[in-house]
Structures are given as structure tokens and as C-alpha cells.
Design a binder for these strands. Structure first.
Lengths: 234, 234
DNA sequence: ACAAAAGTGTTGAGAGTACACCCATGC
DNA sequence: GCATGGGTGTACTCTCAACACTTTTGT
């Protein structure tokens, strides 16, 4: 970073790009993995869908920009956000040079309350496998985010960020099945997740629903679950 | 990215940050993992060491900037580069708001030929565990890059990017031991790496050195070695 | 023939995977 | 008492990890 600013640096010597932070917001809605999109009103790409974002203010960190964009769209704070990748090909925005630092966020669906009428733009949740045509290179960004999410899910415990505070093991298993796109064995799933010691019992049981009420669990705040990776080399 | 450009967007409406790409250049030198640093001449941080970098030109992609910075310092093209993370806290450069997209590069030591006198700055290779005081937040960037390198080494085959075209299995094992900082079992190492089918024999044998000459291997260009990760959940 | 580095197999332990039945509750 | 979802154990397979001697070459 700026390691290399020339000796007599003149800020106007270089034409500066615009910098935005855009956030791919994931949530589990109606048993599907969905992303939040907003409808663009003005050209370019008018009436197309795009991921929410914002310009980086001059005195604001990237993380702060991401949190602000997220709160604007979902009304949620304190959710899991992670920097994803920075996209900067010239021409990705036809108006001017724009460099976008992409983040992704995992939001439990029950926490979301869209702020009504904060601006005119329409928002919607879209299933990851059935996205509408997207503005700019946003399809690429979402694809990248989805790959990263599946990947992280396998070796870390970010999946809990998509669930409410308390949940049953079956709900947890279903969340994993939705995101990974494969069925998991109930007994193996339970054995392994309990062995990881990242959950604690609430002592409560599920109140509603048919059949035997399920035990409710909570994610342990002090849990540090990173799997020892199987290495390519011994 | 720029999903959210306001309807009547005026490029001058927002104060734009400067954007640089800085590159953490790793190589194996004298049986140690080292990074290439350049000595700053002008303030701020005059006479301190920093990682090389450059401003992003207005019509140049981030990747192109990284490759250019790398070629300037090492004379090398066609090496492994990967985007690492984007650092953007206000105040990290005392002069102006600078956002830095950090890359890391893996360069085989035998490929490097520093361009003499391209500018006045002095360069040097530093062992990762014995770095001098660094300008800006470059210590943090290098630390981040080192973590990522160790991590990638365990589940992918990027390690080969630090070796010459042909190498012996013992040299390869030593490279891994240096970077991972632990001793590996020779028999297990060989069995597993050969089973991965990412190497091919050259048919040649090592010419110099004491003892029995070792078989020379080459990394298979068509090899795609990503390890199936051990998952947190079944 | 000896010094130096290359190369080669086996075994025991632990983790992963596949698989089917009993239990608690509401209606 | 039956329908519904919750909860539990075992056997087989495969991967991992630990470990020591023989082979090839140069001097």
C-alpha cells in the first residue's frame, strides 16, 4: 500500500478511481439460500437487479462502508461480514473507473426488517440458482461469494450465522444441506457436531410442531471451530 | 460494485481515494522463506522498508498493476500471483486516503534478476521471521500474506511455484519444511505426493552433489491438485 | 570400503461412512 | 393408538502416522 508513493507526491498527479463497497447478503428464506438484490432505477442497467453497495466515504473504513450498506438494506447490525475480493477491471462500469471491494454477509432471516421507504428502490430475495439478469459484473461477484460460502461452510462454523439464536439439530442439518446441496446422514451429523463442542444445550425444548419436541441448542460464543485440514502433503 | 451509483452521478460528488496495488513477493533464498522489500527514500517513513507497489493507472486492471510492480522489482514475468486482501483504514497513509489492494507472489529464486538502477531505491530480501521495522501497515500485510501462504500450502500445490522447473523430491520436501516450519517424514511425504499424480519424472538425474544422485521431477502443467478437505460436518 | 544422500513397506490407531430401529409427544 | 419427527449405536473401510534399513554413487 502506497509503499511506493513517489517522493514529491501530488494527489492530483494520478486520476483517481471511484471506490465502492458492495455486499452480497445471504440468508436462508423458505428453505432456500437467497441473496438480497435491489432494483436499479437509473441507467446504466436501469431496471436491472444489482447487489447493494455504497461509495466509500473519505473518512470511513471499508468495513464501515459494508456495515452501513448492510444496515441500510436490512436494518440489521452485528452480523457476520467478510471481505471477499476486489474487482477492478476497467470498463466494468461504463460511466467511470470504479473499483469495488466486495463483501459477503450472512444474516439470519428472523433478524431482517427492511427499512420502509428509505429510498425508492425495490428490493427482493432471489434464490441463488435462479437469479435475474444482473447489472455490471454482479453475476460474477455472486458466483464468487457462493463458492466461498460453500467452501467456508465445510471447514469452519460460519453456517450458524444464518440461523436464529436457538435452533434444533434438524434445523441446523437442513441449513447445511441447503447450502451444500447434498443430503447428510442424521446420526453422523449429530455425532460429529456434538463432538466439535461448539454447541450448548439451552435446556429448553421446541414448543410447536408435530411429533416429539426437539432439544434447542445455541452456538457457543466461545467456540473456535476450525477443522484441522486434511493436507495435501503429510 | 457501483450497484448503487446514484441516479445523477457526478464523479466529482465524492472525494476519491487513491488506490495502490502492493505485492508481497516471496521466494526461497538460502534455505529460508524471504520477502522482497524496498527502502523508502522520502517521507513519510523515510529510510524504512516497505513492500513494493504502484498506483493503479486509470485504464489498468488490478492484476496488471500487480504484474507491473512485480516485473519492476524482480524482472520476472509469468509467476504466480494472487489477490490477498484490500486494506483501507483511513489514516494508514498520513498524507492522503489510500486504499491498497494487496497481492502476493511466489517467485522461484533462480528466475530473479533485479533490474539494475531502474530507480534509486535499494531492495533486499528479508527472512520472514526477522523483518526490519516497516512503513505504513506493511507488517500487518506481510503477516496476513504469510498466514495465507502456509494455509494454501496445506491444501493446494502452490508450493511448486517457489521451486525451479526441475527439482528433486528432497528439495521439494525441504521447501515444504521451511514454509510450514515443521519436519516431515520422508517416506510419507514421497508416498503422498506421488499418489497425488501432480509430478512427472524428467528421466534425468541430478548431476552434482555427494551421495546417490536423485531423480529429477517436474510439476505437471495439467495437474489440478486441490485436496478434498476434511469437513467439519459429515 | 566408506561416506553421503536416495529410495523403499508395513503395521496399528483413529476417523469416516453406511445403515435401521425405538422414543416422546399431540391429536 | 397412531402419526410425526426426534433421537440413538455398531461394524467395516480407509487414511494417517510412526518407524529403519538397503541402494547407488563419488572418493
Amino acid at each position: 500500500m502506497s509503499a511506493d508513493l513517489p517522493e514529491n507526491y501530488d494527489p492530483n498527479q494520478f486520476e483517481r478511481p471511484s471506490v465502492t463497497v458492495d455486499v452480497v447478503i445471504f440468508s436462508l428464506v423458505e428453505d432456500e439460500l437467497k441473496v438480497l438484490l435491489i432494483k436499479r432505477l437509473a441507467p446504466p442497467f436501469a431496471n436491472m437487479w444489482a447487489i447493494p453497495g455504497s461509495f466509500v466515504q473519505i473518512d470511513e473504513s471499508l468495513e464501515e462502508t459494508a456495515v452501513r450498506a448492510l444496515a441500510d438494506e436490512t436494518g440489521v447490525e452485528d452480523v457476520y461480514t467478510e471481505q471477499l475480493y476486489t474487482f477492478g477491471k476497467p470498463g466494468r462500469d461504463p460511466r467511470t473507473r470504479v473499483i469495488t471491494v466486495a463483501y459477503f454477509a450472512l444474516v439470519p432471516h428472523d433478524a431482517i426488517h427492511h427499512k420502509a421507504g428509505r429510498d425508492a428502490s425495490e428490493t427482493g430475495w432471489f434464490t441463488i440458482s435462479q437469479l435475474p439478469p444482473l447489472a455490471f459484473d454482479h453475476a460474477e461477484i455472486i458466483d464468487y461469494a457462493h463458492t466461498r460460502l460453500r467452501y467456508k461452510l465445510e471447514y469452519s462454523s460460519v453456517g450458524f450465522q444464518l440461523l436464529p439464536d436457538v435452533f434444533t439439530l434438524t434445523e441446523l442439518q437442513q441449513a447445511y444441506e441447503i447450502i451444500l446441496g447434498e443430503q447428510l446422514d442424521k446420526r453422523n451429523f449429530r455425532r460429529k457436531i456434538l463432538a466439535a463442542e461448539i454447541l450448548e444445550e439451552t435446556g429448553e425444548k421446541q414448543k410447536e410442531g408435530e411429533g416429539r419436541p426437539a432439544m434447542l441448542y445455541r452456538y457457543r460464543e466461545d467456540a473456535v471451530a476450525e477443522v484441522k485440514t486434511r493436507r495435501l502433503f503429510p
